[in-house]
């Protein structure tokens, strides 16, 4: 009975979606929504070898960006457990899932006998329990803080026994980010609105990582003017109207992509008085990697810049 009702709802929704998409709200979507998610990891040339001692052999990572960093540093084969949200590179999907922020499974972690567990700063209880209760080595690097990413990478490098390789990554990222920024430095940037969640209207504040990406991509983050230090403040639609964005990036596409697409189209079509909507400049992408300060950030910024500037012209 429940399934029947769900089916009805889905069907009704399907009918609705097609009529809306006909309006061309998503006309600009010539890029796959998984575009950013599937950008490749950088392949770096290292001059140092991985030492035989002082390097953890069984690593569990809760931080998606750290998972990527570990692979880039050449230690990907030492990963024995990944968090629920770690999805890149594809190899990690084969690893056991130890849960997410809220439902981390301590048992599964301990069972994997890791000699290094990488956790978010917020996971205080879990960190304490693994450290004090099970005597495991826990690291909470600064990689998730926008202005301390380099520091975090170096921290990770030290803990992994490959500090020189970490330094290579830091240099690489600095160079690449500068190169990308230079591409559009003298070009006027499109006023861009990024929305992480349509129902709460979360937008990237000036302290968010996305602000860094947009800046590097030569775009103007309309939400940067908000007077708050929160990385993802929520705003009212009126504010959005005032900002008059030229391009809108909707990052609300997730697992149930088709359904989310329909919902997004419906939402934006109700705001046809926004220039971006009227001109069909609403883009939908999977959000994961765009909010992940990892080794692909330069590639992401570059792709972002290319898309935004192409749309603009």
């Amino acid at each position: 009975m429940v399934r029947f009702i769900l089916l009805l709802l889905l069907v009704a929704q399907g009918c609705d979606r097609s009529s809306v998409e006909r309006q061309g709200i998503l006309a600009a979507q010539r890029w796959d929504s998984k575009l950013f998610a599937e950008l490749p990891l950088p392949e770096l040339e290292f001059t140092t070898e991985i030492p035989g001692t002082g390097v953890p052999h069984r690593i569990v990572s809760f931080i998606p960006s750290v998972t990527e960093i570990i692979f880039v540093l050449g230690l990907g084969d030492r990963l024995v457990g990944r968090c629920h949200w770690c999805d890149w590179p594809r190899e990690v999907l084969a690893l056991p899932d130890v849960g997410g922020l809220q439902n981390a499974s301590q048992e599964v972690i301990v069972d994997l006998r890791p000699d290094l567990v990488v956790l978010f700063r917020d996971q205080v209880e879990l960190a304490g329990s693994l450290r004090d209760g099970f005597g495991l080595r826990v690291l909470t690097p600064a990689t998730e803080e926008t202005d301390r990413i380099d520091e975090g990478i170096r921290e990770l490098g030290v803990a992994l026994g490959v500090p020189e390789r970490a330094e290579v990554l830091v240099d690489y990222l600095a160079r690449e980010m500068e190169r990308v920024a230079a591409r559009w430095r003298d070009v006027p940037g499109p006023r861009t609105l990024v929305v992480l969640d349509r129902s709460s209207l979360w937008v990237p504040g000036r302290t968010s990582f996305l602000e860094v990406l947009l800046e590097t991509a030569g775009a103007v983050n309309v939400a940067a003017s908000l007077d708050t230090d929160r990385p993802w403040p929520s705003v009212s639609l009126e504010k959005v109207l005032e900002w008059r964005p030229e391009v809108i990036l909707d990052l609300g596409i997730g697992k149930a992509e088709d359904l989310a697409r329909g919902e997004a189209a419906r939402f934006w079509s109700g705001l046809s008085h926004l220039d971006a909507v009227r001109n069909g400049r609403v883009l939908l992408f999977q959000s994961g990697v765009l909010v992940r300060p990892g080794p692909r950030m330069a590639a992401v910024a570059e792709k972002l810049g290319e898309i935004l500037h192409e749309l603009r012209s």
Partner: peptide, 16 residues
């Protein structure tokens, strides 16, 4: 349930 399953029509689901 509608939100968790990704169904768009939250209002009708709520009413149901």
């Amino acid at each position: 349930l509608a939100l968790a399953l990704g169904v768009t029509f939250v209002s009708p689901a709520a009413f149901l």
